[in-house]
């Protein structure tokens, strides 16, 4: 589904990704771990097409299409979803309005008509119930005045509504208390499907107690220095990152 080969990218003059390769297939859950500044969030942003990051080399394809040729909204409509680490507030814009516009943009791309207003509300209520969200959030400004946990739940709500093929969740666990973490994790688990891939970007292995990944990759200085299964995360929890970095550099 997602094939990344020897990808290099920079922001300003700083090279952040330095030859990263990653292969993600439908139905898989991958965890990308690594110390601060290793390039985890950059990878997420580059896949989504953030304009501040300049790709300087390598390739990235999504279901055979050259991802790097597509505008961010085109990538989204193809089914790439990014759950933001810091979801922005958009005051004055109704949460339901944004959600509906997003759903319709995707539907239009798929050759479907606009979603019926009642159908939309019904669907949104269902998903919100699943995530333990109060429906009043639909009528608030996008993320406006939301707590950290509410923002993250709102991201998962959007993911649930948009039904992406590939979901990249950037530090979705950061800043969450244990109840919020459980709710978000349950939401994500319920969205695991054979035709959907999920990439979890996380600093701590805590999230992986609730969402069990098929693969774990360790990122350091813009490259994946070790890949393994779920046990690699536990090893990291115990030993930290340094031993891997030393091994990689040595």
């Amino acid at each position: 589904m997602l094939e990344i080969n020897n990808l290099t990218a920079r922001i300003g003059d700083t090279e952040i990704l330095r030859g990263l390769s990653l292969s993600v297939k439908a139905g898989e859950v991958h965890a990308i771990m690594g110390p601060n500044g290793s390039g985890k969030s950059t990878l997420a942003q580059v896949i989504a097409g953030h304009q501040d990051y300049v790709v300087t080399g390598g390739t990235a394809t999504f279901n055979g299409k050259n991802l790097l040729d597509l505008e961010p909204e085109e990538r989204a409509r193809e089914g790439v979803f990014l759950g933001f680490q810091y979801p922005v507030e958009i005051p004055g814009v109704n949460n339901a309005y944004l959600l509906k516009a997003a759903v319709n943009a995707r539907r239009q791309h798929q050759g479907l008509g606009e979603i019926d207003a009642f159908e939309f509300l019904k669907l949104a209520r269902e998903k919100m119930a699943m995530l333990g969200m109060d429906t009043k959030f639909l009528n608030r400004g996008v993320n406006e005045g939301f707590s950290g946990g509410e923002k993250k739940r709102n991201e998962i709500l959007q993911m649930a509504m948009l039904e992406p093929k590939l979901a990249i969740l950037d530090e979705t666990d950061s800043g969450l208390d244990i109840d919020a973490l459980k709710a978000v994790a349950e939401g994500v688990n319920s969205l695991r499907k054979p035709d959907r891939a999920i990439v979890l970007v996380t600093h701590y292995q805590r999230l992986l107690d609730y969402i069990s990944p098929d693969f774990v990759h360790v990122l350091s200085e813009g490259r994946i220095i070790r890949s393994g299964d779920r046990t690699l995360a536990l090893e990291l929890e115990e030993k930290g990152y340094d031993w891997l970095r030393e091994a990689a550099n040595g």
Binding site: Q51, P72, A76, F84, I90, P91, A105
Partner: peptide, 29 residues
């Protein structure tokens, strides 16, 4: 306030074209 690049990128990542995103934010305002 400012229509920030982050707000626009957020909307675009949800599949909403840039111009529609601006209109949405302005009309909300």
């Amino acid at each position: 306030s400012k229509i920030s690049a982050d707000q626009l990128f957020y909307c675009r990542q949800r599949g909403i074209a840039e111009e529609d995103a601006v209109n949405m934010i302005v009309n909300g305002f």
